[in-house]
Structures are given as structure tokens and as C-alpha cells.
Amino acid sequence: MTKHAIRRILIPLILSLVGCTRPPSEFTVDYYLSNNAAREEKLSECANDPGALQGDALCVNAQKAGAIKGLGSLRERPRTSLLEAQERREKEQGKSGN
């Protein structure tokens, strides 16, 4: 092969490989934590097509942020003893049983 033929093959190959690298996502878990509308939109999109988007980085980030938002920060929650938690559950069960 001549130098010209090698260049014809290698240059497009190298350029295509460079194009495959992904830049870091600006849509991080922190982004989705602070942008409720964007998180809900992405979660809806991911739920609508789970087969194609399963494992997609943006879906994972939005799901993680949703899980954190759903639980909330443990530091912000009031302290509860196990006994208080059990009493609260019993009261709730008693209300729903009546």
C-alpha cells in the first residue's frame, strides 16, 4: 500500500473514533435535583421508552435525582426512635382499619 492509500484509510478511521468519545454530561444528578421540570420531563421520556433508553446516562441521572428527592435529606428529617415509629404505624393502621 502506498502512503496515500494508508492516509485515506487511517484519517477517516481516527476521526470517527474521536467522534465516539462523549463529553461529560451537563445534566448531572445535581442538575436534576435543582430543576424539577427537567427531571420530570426526562423521567417521563425514559418511562415512555424503557427498552431503548434503559441504562441511558441521562435517565439514570434523572432517576437517581428522583429517588433522592422522594426520600429527601435524612439530615432534614426529625429524629424518631423505633418506638415512636412503631406507635405511629399502629395509629395509622388503626385509622385505616376503622
Rank of each mutant, 00 (worst) to 15 (best):
S34M: 05
A38H: 06
S25V: 08
Q63Y: 00
G72I: 05
N48F: 01
Q86Y: 03
V29A: 00
S44N: 14
R77F: 06
V18K: 03
L15P: 01
E45C: 03
K91Q: 13
L43C: 05
I9R: 10
C59F: 02
E40D: 08
I14V: 15
A65C: 11
S73M: 07
Y31W: 15
N61R: 00
C20M: 15
G19H: 01
V29M: 00
E26S: 13
E87S: 11
E84T: 06
N36M: 09
G72T: 03
E45P: 01
G51C: 02
L10W: 05
P78N: 09
Q86E: 07
R22S: 07
A37Q: 12
Q93E: 15
E41R: 10
L43K: 00
K42Y: 05
D56Y: 02
S34K: 12
E40A: 12
R77A: 13
E92I: 07
R75V: 14
A85I: 00
L74M: 08
A67K: 10
N48P: 00
S96R: 14
R7Q: 12
A47R: 08
G70T: 03
E84Y: 03
D56S: 15
N61E: 02
N36S: 13
R22G: 04
L58I: 11
I6G: 03
A62I: 01
P50S: 12
P23I: 04
P24H: 09
Y31A: 10
E90R: 15
R75F: 13
Y31H: 14
E84S: 07
L17K: 01
S25L: 14
K64A: 12
E45S: 09
D30R: 11
N98A: 14
T28P: 05
G97L: 11
E26K: 15
C59R: 02
G51Q: 03
C59E: 03
K95M: 12
G94H: 05
D49K: 09
T2V: 07
R75Y: 06
I6M: 08
E45R: 07
S44I: 06
I9S: 09
K95Y: 05
E26Y: 02
N61P: 04
K91M: 14
I11A: 13
